[in-house]
Amino acid sequence: MKFGVVRFPGSCDEVDALMACRRFADAEILWHGDRDLAGVDAVVIPGGFSYGDYLRVGAIARFSPVMEAVKAHVLAGGPVLGICNGFQVLCEAGLLPGALLPNAGLRFLCRQVDVEVVNSDTPFTRACAAGDTLSIPVKHTTGRYYAPEETLREMDAHGQIILRYATGCNPNGSLADVAGVVNRDGNVMGLMPHPEHAVDPLTGSADGSCIFQSLMDHVEEGPARLAEARA
Protein backbone atom coordinates (compact mmCIF):
# COMPACT_ATOMS: atom_id res chain seq x y z
CA MET A 1 0.00 0.00 0.00
CA LYS A 2 1.37 3.40 -0.90
CA PHE A 3 0.19 6.90 -0.01
CA GLY A 4 1.03 9.90 -2.22
CA VAL A 5 1.17 13.34 -0.61
CA VAL A 6 0.85 16.29 -2.98
CA ARG A 7 3.31 19.18 -2.70
CA PHE A 8 2.16 22.50 -4.18
CA PRO A 9 4.38 25.59 -4.24
CA GLY A 10 4.20 26.92 -0.70
CA SER A 11 2.83 23.70 0.84
CA CYS A 12 3.88 23.44 4.45
CA ASP A 13 2.19 20.46 6.12
CA GLU A 14 3.15 17.95 3.45
CA VAL A 15 6.13 16.56 5.37
CA ASP A 16 3.97 16.09 8.47
CA ALA A 17 1.42 14.21 6.36
CA LEU A 18 4.18 12.14 4.76
CA MET A 19 5.59 11.18 8.16
CA ALA A 20 2.11 10.31 9.45
CA CYS A 21 1.40 8.11 6.39
CA ARG A 22 4.74 6.34 6.77
CA ARG A 23 3.70 5.12 10.20
CA PHE A 24 1.16 2.96 8.36
CA ALA A 25 2.46 2.27 4.87
CA ASP A 26 4.81 3.47 2.15
CA ALA A 27 4.40 7.07 1.18
CA GLU A 28 5.97 9.53 -1.23
CA ILE A 29 5.67 13.15 -2.28
CA LEU A 30 3.78 13.95 -5.50
CA TRP A 31 5.03 17.08 -7.30
CA HIS A 32 2.37 19.62 -8.32
CA GLY A 33 3.72 19.83 -11.86
CA ASP A 34 3.45 16.09 -12.56
CA ARG A 35 0.40 14.65 -14.27
CA ASP A 36 0.92 11.18 -12.94
CA LEU A 37 0.44 9.76 -9.48
CA ALA A 38 3.34 7.31 -9.59
CA GLY A 39 1.03 4.38 -8.90
CA VAL A 40 -0.02 5.40 -5.39
CA ASP A 41 -3.14 3.80 -3.90
CA ALA A 42 -4.38 6.79 -1.91
CA VAL A 43 -3.74 10.53 -2.33
CA VAL A 44 -3.41 13.02 0.52
CA ILE A 45 -3.83 16.73 -0.27
CA PRO A 46 -2.08 18.21 2.76
CA GLY A 47 -2.78 21.17 4.96
CA GLY A 48 -0.92 24.42 5.15
CA PHE A 49 -1.00 26.76 2.20
CA SER A 50 -0.81 26.46 -1.57
CA TYR A 51 0.48 29.18 -3.90
CA GLY A 52 0.34 31.57 -0.94
CA ASP A 53 -3.47 31.48 -0.98
CA TYR A 54 -3.49 35.21 -1.60
CA LEU A 55 -6.55 34.83 -3.81
CA ARG A 56 -9.28 32.59 -2.34
CA VAL A 57 -7.83 29.62 -0.45
CA GLY A 58 -7.30 26.66 -2.76
CA ALA A 59 -8.43 28.64 -5.81
CA ILE A 60 -5.12 28.37 -7.66
CA ALA A 61 -4.02 24.92 -6.55
CA ARG A 62 -7.01 23.31 -8.22
CA PHE A 63 -5.59 24.32 -11.61
CA SER A 64 -2.21 22.66 -11.05
CA PRO A 65 -1.34 19.73 -13.35
CA VAL A 66 -1.34 17.14 -10.58
CA MET A 67 -5.01 17.87 -9.87
CA GLU A 68 -5.93 16.44 -13.30
CA ALA A 69 -4.40 13.15 -12.22
CA VAL A 70 -6.15 13.39 -8.85
CA LYS A 71 -9.50 13.84 -10.62
CA ALA A 72 -8.84 10.80 -12.80
CA HIS A 73 -7.90 8.81 -9.69
CA VAL A 74 -11.20 9.85 -8.07
CA LEU A 75 -13.20 8.86 -11.14
CA ALA A 76 -11.53 5.45 -11.01
CA GLY A 77 -12.75 5.08 -7.42
CA GLY A 78 -9.41 5.76 -5.74
CA PRO A 79 -9.44 7.36 -2.28
CA VAL A 80 -8.39 10.99 -1.75
CA LEU A 81 -8.02 12.66 1.66
CA GLY A 82 -7.89 16.45 1.87
CA ILE A 83 -6.70 17.96 5.14
CA CYS A 84 -7.43 21.65 5.89
CA ASN A 85 -6.01 23.42 2.82
CA GLY A 86 -6.50 20.11 1.03
CA PHE A 87 -10.19 20.21 1.98
CA GLN A 88 -10.36 23.75 0.60
CA VAL A 89 -8.65 22.66 -2.64
CA LEU A 90 -11.04 19.72 -3.07
CA CYS A 91 -14.07 22.01 -2.60
CA GLU A 92 -12.62 24.47 -5.13
CA ALA A 93 -12.02 21.57 -7.54
CA GLY A 94 -15.66 20.52 -7.23
CA LEU A 95 -14.69 17.12 -5.82
CA LEU A 96 -16.48 17.85 -2.54
CA PRO A 97 -19.74 19.71 -1.90
CA GLY A 98 -19.83 23.02 -0.07
CA ALA A 99 -17.22 25.65 0.64
CA LEU A 100 -15.03 26.91 3.46
CA LEU A 101 -15.49 30.48 4.61
CA PRO A 102 -13.44 32.65 6.94
CA ASN A 103 -13.77 31.62 10.61
CA ALA A 104 -16.59 33.30 12.51
CA GLY A 105 -13.89 34.92 14.69
CA LEU A 106 -12.00 36.15 11.57
CA ARG A 107 -8.70 35.03 13.08
CA PHE A 108 -6.29 32.16 12.64
CA LEU A 109 -7.02 29.63 15.37
CA CYS A 110 -4.81 26.76 16.53
CA ARG A 111 -6.51 24.59 19.15
CA GLN A 112 -6.97 20.98 20.18
CA VAL A 113 -10.66 20.08 19.65
CA ASP A 114 -12.88 17.05 20.09
CA VAL A 115 -14.60 15.70 16.99
CA GLU A 116 -17.22 12.98 16.86
CA VAL A 117 -17.28 10.25 14.28
CA VAL A 118 -20.76 10.39 12.75
CA ASN A 119 -20.34 7.74 10.07
CA SER A 120 -17.80 4.91 10.40
CA ASP A 121 -18.94 3.32 7.18
CA THR A 122 -16.40 5.04 4.90
CA PRO A 123 -12.87 4.25 3.69
CA PHE A 124 -11.64 7.03 5.99
CA THR A 125 -13.38 6.10 9.23
CA ARG A 126 -13.83 2.32 9.09
CA ALA A 127 -11.25 1.80 11.86
CA CYS A 128 -13.42 3.95 14.18
CA ALA A 129 -16.85 3.38 15.64
CA ALA A 130 -19.70 5.81 15.15
CA GLY A 131 -19.90 7.97 18.26
CA ASP A 132 -16.14 7.82 18.92
CA THR A 133 -14.66 11.11 20.09
CA LEU A 134 -11.28 12.02 18.63
CA SER A 135 -8.98 14.70 20.04
CA ILE A 136 -7.35 16.34 17.01
CA PRO A 137 -6.01 19.89 16.53
CA VAL A 138 -7.41 22.48 14.15
CA LYS A 139 -5.36 25.39 12.78
CA HIS A 140 -6.84 27.61 10.13
CA THR A 141 -8.29 31.01 9.23
CA THR A 142 -10.77 29.71 6.67
CA GLY A 143 -12.52 26.68 8.06
CA ARG A 144 -16.17 27.58 8.47
CA TYR A 145 -17.99 24.91 6.50
CA TYR A 146 -20.89 26.12 4.45
CA ALA A 147 -23.32 24.43 2.07
CA PRO A 148 -26.85 25.45 1.07
CA GLU A 149 -29.48 24.01 3.39
CA GLU A 150 -30.81 21.66 0.72
CA THR A 151 -27.32 20.29 -0.01
CA LEU A 152 -26.61 19.87 3.67
CA ARG A 153 -29.84 17.92 4.13
CA GLU A 154 -28.99 15.62 1.26
CA MET A 155 -25.46 15.14 2.56
CA ASP A 156 -26.85 14.22 5.95
CA ALA A 157 -29.30 11.78 4.40
CA HIS A 158 -26.50 10.04 2.47
CA GLY A 159 -24.13 9.83 5.43
CA GLN A 160 -21.75 12.31 3.87
CA ILE A 161 -21.18 14.28 7.07
CA ILE A 162 -18.71 11.96 8.74
CA LEU A 163 -17.12 14.14 11.43
CA ARG A 164 -18.70 16.81 13.61
CA TYR A 165 -17.17 19.05 16.22
CA ALA A 166 -18.23 17.83 19.66
CA THR A 167 -20.62 20.02 21.63
CA GLY A 168 -18.90 23.27 22.58
CA CYS A 169 -15.90 22.56 20.33
CA ASN A 170 -16.97 24.17 17.02
CA PRO A 171 -13.99 26.52 16.54
CA ASN A 172 -15.07 28.40 13.43
CA GLY A 173 -18.85 28.60 13.16
CA SER A 174 -19.19 25.69 10.71
CA LEU A 175 -22.80 24.94 9.78
CA ALA A 176 -24.19 21.96 11.70
CA ASP A 177 -20.78 21.57 13.42
CA VAL A 178 -19.43 19.94 10.25
CA ALA A 179 -15.75 19.02 10.63
CA GLY A 180 -15.35 16.47 7.85
CA VAL A 181 -17.35 15.33 4.81
CA VAL A 182 -17.17 12.80 1.99
CA ASN A 183 -18.43 12.99 -1.60
CA ARG A 184 -21.49 11.04 -2.64
CA ASP A 185 -19.36 8.11 -3.87
CA GLY A 186 -17.59 8.00 -0.55
CA ASN A 187 -14.03 8.01 -1.91
CA VAL A 188 -13.10 11.69 -1.35
CA MET A 189 -12.88 13.08 2.16
CA GLY A 190 -12.14 16.59 3.38
CA LEU A 191 -11.67 17.61 7.00
CA MET A 192 -10.47 20.76 8.74
CA PRO A 193 -8.85 19.07 11.78
CA HIS A 194 -5.32 17.77 11.24
CA PRO A 195 -5.09 14.00 11.81
CA GLU A 196 -1.42 14.07 10.73
CA HIS A 197 -0.71 16.15 13.86
CA ALA A 198 -2.42 13.53 16.03
CA VAL A 199 -0.50 10.30 15.45
CA ASP A 200 1.79 10.31 18.52
CA PRO A 201 0.85 10.81 22.19
CA LEU A 202 4.20 12.56 22.73
CA THR A 203 3.12 15.44 20.51
CA GLY A 204 -0.41 15.65 21.90
CA SER A 205 -2.63 12.78 20.78
CA ALA A 206 -2.74 9.66 18.61
CA ASP A 207 -6.45 9.90 17.84
CA GLY A 208 -5.86 10.92 14.22
CA SER A 209 -4.24 7.54 13.51
CA CYS A 210 -7.61 5.94 12.84
CA ILE A 211 -8.04 7.98 9.65
CA PHE A 212 -4.78 6.68 8.19
CA GLN A 213 -5.44 3.19 9.55
CA SER A 214 -8.87 3.21 7.89
CA LEU A 215 -7.38 4.19 4.53
CA MET A 216 -4.79 1.46 4.81
CA ASP A 217 -7.40 -1.15 5.70
CA HIS A 218 -9.52 0.04 2.81
CA VAL A 219 -6.71 -0.36 0.30
CA GLU A 220 -5.25 -3.57 1.72
CA GLU A 221 -8.44 -5.43 2.46
CA GLY A 222 -10.65 -3.86 -0.13
CA PRO A 223 -14.16 -2.56 0.16
CA ALA A 224 -15.62 -6.08 -0.20
CA ARG A 225 -14.50 -7.10 3.23
CA LEU A 226 -16.10 -4.01 4.73
CA ALA A 227 -19.39 -4.92 3.11
CA GLU A 228 -19.01 -8.44 4.44
CA ALA A 229 -18.36 -7.22 7.92
CA ARG A 230 -21.43 -5.05 7.71
CA ALA A 231 -23.58 -7.94 6.58
Binding site: D13, M19, C110, R111, T203
Partner: peptide
Protein backbone atom coordinates in the same frame (compact mmCIF):
# COMPACT_ATOMS: atom_id res chain seq x y z
CA UNK B 1 -3.92 30.39 19.58
CA UNK B 2 -3.27 32.70 16.64
CA UNK B 3 -0.05 30.87 15.87
CA UNK B 4 0.46 27.43 14.38
CA UNK B 5 2.53 25.71 17.07
CA UNK B 6 2.31 22.24 15.52
CA UNK B 7 3.68 22.21 11.99
CA UNK B 8 6.82 20.13 11.76
CA UNK B 9 5.43 17.49 14.16
CA UNK B 10 8.16 18.21 16.70
CA UNK B 11 6.19 20.11 19.34
Amino acid sequence: EQYDCLVGSRT
